[in-house]
């Protein structure tokens, strides 16, 4: 995975997706109000190659860490949340390396998913929103039998515990989603880049 310094990019960057080959990492110059105006952009993972057995209707495919396609969102490896848009940047979380496959754990048999995400900067105020978006996306994309844990990668955020606590509290998540404004924000994060 290459790791390039971001440089001002064209407005058309919004179209950049994990599909485009050579999806080059570029940064975009956003409004001055952004906290991290110049984030690092990483290359998105390729779509996983469809194996012959996956097209055989009689074979059962387990949900695994590579369930990227299932979740259509670009949490790599878990490309689970891959295409979730960062609330601040018109880039996917994967492009920003907020989520990476190695930090996603999936156990189909036990029905368990654990996602750790890494905010771009330690003081990112959007951490909770990103977490919430990931969580909602997982809830919508996974069968009901799955238990979902979403946490900040240890040591990556200033108020790690507070964020984790918020994301781990079912009641608070539910309450947050009752808030139409917040839900709207989350939906915006989840709007799939076509």
């Amino acid at each position: 995975m290459k790791n390039l310094k971001g440089s001002p990019g064209p407005a058309g960057l919004r179209r950049l997706s994990h599909h485009s080959s050579g999806a080059v990492k570029e940064t975009t110059k956003m409004a001055a109000s952004l906290q991290n105006t110049n984030p690092m952009v990483f290359k998105a993972k390729q779509e996983r190659i469809i194996l012959p057995e996956e097209e055989d209707d009689s074979v059962v495919d387990k949900i695994d860490e590579r369930e990227q396609t299932t979740f259509n969102i670009s949490l790599t490896g878990i490309h689970l949340i891959r295409s979730i848009n960062d609330p601040e940047h018109p880039l996917t979380l994967e492009q920003l390396n907020v989520v990476e496959q190695s930090l996603v754990e999936v156990d189909d048999d036990k029905g368990y998913v654990k996602v750790q995400f890494t905010p771009t900067i330690p003081h990112c105020s959007m951490a909770t929103l990103i977490g919430l978006a990931i969580r909602v996306q997982l809830l919508r994309s996974l069968p009901d039998r799955f238990k979902v844990d979403v946490n900040v990668t240890p040591g990556s955020h200033a108020s790690e515990d507070a964020v984790n606590k918020q994301l781990g509290d079912k009641e608070r998540v539910a309450a947050a989603l009752e808030n139409s404004h917040l839900l709207e924000l989350v939906n915006q994060c989840l709007a799939v880049q076509q």
Partner: peptide, 10 residues
Amino acid sequence: VDDKKRLVRK
């Protein structure tokens, strides 16, 4: 979304 086939799940 709990289909046995990954492609269908996708």
